[in-house]
Structure formats: C-alpha cells, structure tokens
Amino acid sequence: MYRGQAARLETLAFRVASPTSSWPLLCAAGAKPGPAVIDWWSRRARSVECVTPANPVPCFKIYTREREREREREREMGSEEETVESREWVLSSYIPQGVPTSDHLKIRTVRIDVGVDSIPDSHVAVQILFISVDPYLRAMMTGQEDGLYLNQFQLNQALRTFGVGRIISSKDANYKNGDLVSNPFFPVANYCVIGSVFLHKIDIKDGISLLDYLSVLGVPGFTAWVGMQVVGDPKPEENVFISAAAGAVGMFASQLAKLKGCRVVGSTGTDEKVKLLKDEFGYDDAFNYKKETDFDAALKK
C-alpha cells in the first residue's frame, strides 16, 4: 500500500485512492501514479492525499472542510438550506488520445437549489460522499463512439459515474433525509439533484462498508461476476486464466473462480504483484507477462 504526501492547499479537499492502472483517467497535468501530489490540483484544493489501498477501487471523497461541523448538524436535524455551493468536474474538450489534463477537465462552482419546493417530483437532493473511478470512463471522453455501449460525456457537463451519497432533501416518499444511497449516474460533484429511479438505498445495519458498494458490490465486482458466472461459467477443476490479475476486476474474478473449485492462473506486470497474487489473493500460479517471451509456454508450466 502506498500512503501519499499531503499538501496544504486552498479551497477544496479530495481524498484520492487509485491504483496506477486507473490513475490517468481523471488526473491533471503533472500527475504521476503512486504517492505523487498533483501540482495542478494543488493550486485548487486544500489537501490531496494519494494512496493505493488494499481496496482495489479508486475513490474520491469530496468535501469542504469549513462545512464539516455544519454537515454534522444537517445529518442530525435535516438541512434547512435552500441552496448549496457545489464544485464539479466538467469535461471542457474531448481527449481522443493520451492522458487528460487541465486543458480537458475543469472545476467549476455552481449553486444548486435543494429546498423541497425546488425539487421535481420523484427527485432527491444528494450530498455525494464517494465516487468510483473506473477504466470505462476514459473511453467516454474521446468524442468517438466506436461502438461503445455507453454514450460519450457531453461537453461542458459534469462527468458521471457510480457513487454513494446522503440524501439531504427528498420529493420521493421512498427516501428521506439522511438515507444513504448508491447510484450509477452521480455527477463528479459535491451535490446534485437527481431522479430516484436508479437509486439504491443502503442499509448501514448490514455492516457493509460504503466503499464496498463501489468495489465488490460495484462495477468491478459486477463485471467479474458476469465474466465468471454468466459468460465463462467454468466448472470445478477446470483451468481459469485471468489477465490484469491484480486489478480491480481480476482479483474478484479469481475469487469467484476459486469458489467454483477451479485452478486459477493470473498474469500481471511486476514481480511484486506476482508475489501478491500467489501469497495473498490465492492464485494457484502467476507470472510477469513483461518477462515472458512465450505466453503459451508460460501457461503450460
């Protein structure tokens, strides 16, 4: 696990957890994977902590420090504010190739009406707590459809992704202030008003971490489940090979395959990750694909 430096900065605070494989998705100019502090963000944020956690899913926790005490009161009593200030990441231009920079992604501040009288029916106002940064998001920034099953992000609109948030105002009888919810289309922002059709209520009594709803119960876990259960459906004692085996999807796929009684072999890009796969993730065998010249021979070992 990497534990990054913390920089004392200006107005907005982000807690960033990201594996190096997904780092380029939403990084800014000068950003590097691992524990690097992002120079471009440092001119706009109060603090940035970059880590690569055991939890495989990258997340942003977005908050404004000066409002923490006020939010505690809001959670207990319900928000009486009619409008809130929200900062959001906006796609200002498409990125056909390369790494997104500050030329492509901008932060803007907007005021959002969150009073009950301002919210449409079957909508809720949400304070967004965590978002998931997944590889598919990069493919939605190119401006080219290329047969992608998801539409491209719209220019000058906030990026959208899976997230977890807390309801601060509701126009839906099924949801009340303080409810925790997940949604696949939250904007990358502090707050939003959104339709309730795709909301999923989170019951904290289940004892499941909020981050688990973005990892094993989110896009990576669901992708792994579809691959192992719906598409591949391997049988006991069969051999299963997983590439990008130390990634967010790969590590879940391997566990599902092991539960089915399969022999699981994975490939990854460093010797350290090979050791991780075998010693901690339970792979039967693994190899560094950057060192192998004959993949058929490596798989036959």
Rank of each mutant, 00 (worst) to 15 (best):
Gln144Phe: 07
Ala125Trp: 06
Phe153Glu: 04
Ile119Val: 11
Ile128Phe: 01
Gly115His: 02
Ile131Tyr: 02
Gly143Asn: 10
Ile119Glu: 03
Tyr136Gly: 02
Gly165Arg: 13
Asp113Phe: 03
Glu145Pro: 02
Leu150Gln: 08
Pro120Phe: 05
Thr109Ala: 05
Ile167Asp: 10
Asn151Asp: 14
Arg138Val: 03
Leu129Ile: 12
Asp121Leu: 10
Leu129Met: 11
Tyr149Met: 11
Phe153Asn: 02
Ser122Pro: 04
Ile119Tyr: 08
Val133Lys: 00
Gln152Asp: 08
Ile168Tyr: 04
Arg160Cys: 13
Val114Lys: 05
Asp146Glu: 14
Ile128Asp: 01
Val114Ala: 05
Gln154Glu: 15
Arg111Cys: 08
Asn177Met: 08
Leu129Phe: 04
Asp146Gly: 05
Thr161Tyr: 01
Ala125Glu: 08
Phe162Val: 01
Val110Arg: 15
Ser169Glu: 11
Gln157Gly: 05
Leu150Met: 14
Asp146Gln: 12
Ile167Thr: 11
Asp172Pro: 12
Thr109Val: 12
Ala173Met: 07
Gly165Ile: 08
Ser122His: 14
Ala139Arg: 07
Ile119Gly: 06
Ala173Leu: 08
Ala173Lys: 15
Met140Ala: 07
Phe153Arg: 05
Ala139Val: 01
Gly163Lys: 04
Ile128Leu: 10
Lys171Cys: 14
Gln154Lys: 15
Glu145Lys: 13
Val116Ile: 11
Arg160Met: 14
Val124Asp: 07
Ala158Asp: 04
Asn156Gly: 08
Ser170Arg: 03
Arg166Tyr: 03
Asp172Phe: 01
Met141Pro: 09
Thr109Asp: 08
His123Trp: 07
Phe130Ile: 03
Ser132Lys: 00
Asn177Gln: 12
Pro135His: 05
Ile128Lys: 09
Thr161Glu: 07
Pro135Ala: 11
Phe153His: 10
Asn174Cys: 13
Val114Ile: 15
Gly165His: 12
Met140Cys: 14
Asp121His: 09
